[in-house]
Every structure is written in structure tokens, then in C-alpha cells.
């Protein structure tokens, strides 16, 4: 598996660290109920197919990335910077 970092280009999977589903971008507000925190931290769609998850380019530019990926084929469909995704209104 190779991931195309928007800043560094096509790089080996070993340069990246997986963090988890893109749900982590939807952090509840401080006053959110416990259920919202449970959903944010634990509950997942966990799709077999197209998914969006967060990777950290640890051995490269240290950018946080939103990766669109297929969990069945391991194909990497598209990669964006988390900052770009968030600038466009929201996160997920």
C-alpha cells in the first residue's frame, strides 16, 4: 500500500501512522452529552468498502491526512490535508 501525500507525493505506507476513522474530526463541543462523546470515541460505521480515515505522515512532512480508501481492496482513492478538509467547512 502506498499513500500519496499532498505535500510529499507518492510514498511508502511505512512512512505513515494510522490514527483511526475520520469520525475523530467531529469532536463534540464541551457541553455535549456523554452519548456524543461515546459515539465520537468508540462507535464506528466500520465499512467494508470505501472509508475515510486519518493518517499521520510521521516519517515525512508530519502532516495529518484524510485518506479515502477502500478497506476491501486497499486501494487509496484520494488524500487531502486535514487542514484543507476542515477549511472547507467542516470536517467530515
Amino acid at each position: 500500500m502506498r499513500i500519496t501525500c499532498p505535500l510529499c507525493g507518492d510514498r511508502d505506507r511505512r512512512e505513515f501512522t494510522y490514527y483511526g476513522a475520520a469520525d475523530y474530526l467531529n469532536r463534540p463541543g464541551m457541553g455535549a452529552p456523554a452519548e456524543a462523546w461515546d459515539a465520537y470515541l468508540h462507535l464506528r460505521d466500520n465499512p467494508a468498502g470505501a472509508t475515510r480515515d486519518l493518517w499521520y505522515h510521521e516519517m515525512g512532512c508530519a502532516a495529518w491526512l484524510v485518506v479515502n480508501r477502500d478497506t476491501v481492496s486497499h486501494a487509496v482513492l484520494s488524500v487531502r490535508l486535514v487542514t484543507d478538509a476542515q477549511a472547507e467547512g467542516g470536517a467530515a
Binding site: 483511526g20 460505521d45 466500520n46 465499512p47 467494508a48 478497506t71
Partner: peptide, 15 residues
Amino acid sequence: SQVAAMAGLRLPIES
């Protein structure tokens, strides 16, 4: 996760 989703459930599971 797929089978539970048929019942509208979202599980604390990642495969």
C-alpha cells in the same frame, strides 16, 4: 458491524 447495521446499530468495533 455490517450485520449489526441491518438492525440500525453502530458498534464500538473497527475491523
